[in-house]
Design a protein around this nucleic acid. Sequence first.
DNA 1: CGACCCTATTCCACTAATGGAATATATATG
DNA 2: CATATATATTCCATTAGTGGAATAGGGTCG
Lengths: 193, 193
Amino acid sequence: MSLKYSILVAISEGPKSGYDVAKQFDETIGFFWRARHSQIYRELGKLKEKQLVFAEEMQQTGKPNRIVFTISEAGREALLAWSREPSQPQELKDDFLVQLYGIDAVDLDALREHLSLRLERHRDRHAQYLAKHKILGDADSLSDLGRQLALEVGIRYENEWADWCTQALERLSVEAVAKLSNVVPIKGSRNKA
Amino acid sequence: MSLKYSILVAISEGPKSGYDVAKQFDETIGFFWRARHSQIYRELGKLKEKQLVFAEEMQQTGKPNRIVFTISEAGREALLAWSREPSQPQELKDDFLVQLYGIDAVDLDALREHLSLRLERHRDRHAQYLAKHKILGDADSLSDLGRQLALEVGIRYENEWADWCTQALERLSVEAVAKLSNVVPIKGSRNKA
DNA sequence: CGACCCTATTCCACTAATGGAATATATATG
DNA sequence: CATATATATTCCATTAGTGGAATAGGGTCG
């Protein structure tokens, strides 16, 4: 529900075109709320209709005209109102965990491969967040502090996942699983064999 | 995209009615993939159409007839195929982080309140996952190991969030912020004041 | 005995998000 | 010169998810 507000936050920092917002989503806000440019433009249209932003068309040649959006007083109020109602924490929602849950019905080798891929990816992301965090340095303003804290969620998140992947790879290794399988076949009362 | 497969996983354990699946979602799979019963019934219908499950109506009096779904061979294959293609890790996507990012445009007191609420909630969830994990004991079968690993993601996730909330509450406390604000107003070139 | 929860499913209106095609020009890179 | 990249927006088809009403008889608790 808050793509709308994510965009409003972006514009609250200063007037921006759809293109600018999309760029900012790629670089910063998108860490916490991803969106395609098509979504952004559509949402921007709605914000304009509701008069939370106003639009100004800048003449350009060669490219389509730039439409610059500025937040309105109503927009600022909407942002405040939004921040006052509690938001739902993101639920864990992941194919991969479902696959683990149903591990008996699934291709174990594939799972291991996916684990390695994820490990890499989480490490990358972790490094990315860390770099952004470093740039902020010691937060000496409230707005830096906010961004820092937000990034720290990202850092923790990716770090835990990476760590978990490493563990999971060990505990699901061929050798580790072989040790298990020897013990269970008696108990394993699944519908197959 | 994988509500479909989450349901298929549930049914792969043994024949179940929509109601059974919904219950299981409340208790276990739903930790990793939430869904309303209305979604489940709809998806079940689609699975049946695609012949990944077959349905058998059990006569009952008093209540609507129970429709029991059993996985088909095609269903098992679909599950395998699904597990072979890599899944996208869940993106961090959270209103709260966006609010932090836009902290200047937002109600700070409200933010603090929400942080406390979240802290509680994450602690609750953490305890919940931990309890489920304990029940599994030392995983002595592959399927237990899978479930254990899945739960461990939940445990880590909730734990990190709880930890972060605690930190954030300190660093966003009135006193902490007061110290900041004294330093910055010169630099703060926001559009207000 | 009334209130409420459990079993069990169907249906529907709605909002949100995905993802990519289409269009058009300037500038930079090799 | 060709190719790619950056600027800038519009449109659209589709999937996924939310949330709650409607129906209906059974059992449980005080």
